[in-house]
Amino acid sequence: MGTEQAAAANGFSYTLTRTLNAPATAVWQAWTTPGQYAQWAGAVDGSVEMDVRPGGPWKATMVTPDGSQFPLTGSYLTVDENRCLVVGMDAPGRPEPTAMTLELTEENGPRTTIVLRQTCDTAEERDMSEQGSTMLLDSLTTFLTPRTAS
């Protein structure tokens, strides 16, 4: 409990939880395969590079809803296949990367619960990151939802 209070006192955190009708392996592959990630995350085709191992670099050029492009870079801090991915994101003017933690828990069905956490430096940064992460999870949900004839 003490660490959570310290983290809250030193930063602005958010936690998002989403349950998908997909096995953890499918969620993991969507998040760690460049071609799949580009499809659902709004990245420029061919801009995603991933070396999914602790310390391995990644980069992607994202496209915003208004069509602007911005490059993102970082490295993987923790890689526990189909369970936990901690992604470090380089932030301009910051010596340390911002870490985003993605935890996967597979349930029966197969269903997977995703818990995404991030701590930011300011309330504004947290709000922007939380909005972006919510959009990512919405897109991932759509990407992994089986298309059924209605």
Rank of each mutant, 00 (worst) to 15 (best):
Y14I: 10
Y14E: 04
T145D: 02
S75D: 15
T61P: 00
L77I: 11
F12E: 13
R117N: 13
R94D: 09
L136A: 14
R117E: 13
D121S: 10
E106N: 02
D45C: 03
V87Y: 10
K59Q: 14
W31G: 00
T78A: 08
P57D: 12
E4N: 10
Q69F: 02
T15F: 05
L16N: 00
W40E: 11
T64C: 05
F12A: 12
G46N: 07
T98E: 00
T25Y: 10
T112N: 05
T113H: 00
Q5M: 14
T73W: 01
D66M: 06
I114G: 02
V52K: 05
L72W: 08
A123I: 05
T142M: 11
G55A: 09
V63S: 02
A24Y: 03
L72N: 03
V87I: 15
V63N: 01
A26F: 05
Q39W: 04
D51H: 14
P95E: 14
E4V: 09
E103F: 01
G46P: 01
A99M: 09
P23N: 13
A30D: 07
G74C: 05
T142G: 06
L116Y: 06
A6Y: 07
V115L: 03
A6K: 05
L72Y: 06
T119M: 12
T25S: 15
G2R: 06
D127E: 14
G132T: 08
T64L: 15
P23S: 14
A26V: 02
L136D: 07
E81W: 02
T98R: 01
T134D: 01
D121M: 00
Q131L: 07
P54K: 01
V79W: 04
M89L: 13
A149M: 10
E125I: 13
P71T: 11
V87Q: 15
P110R: 09
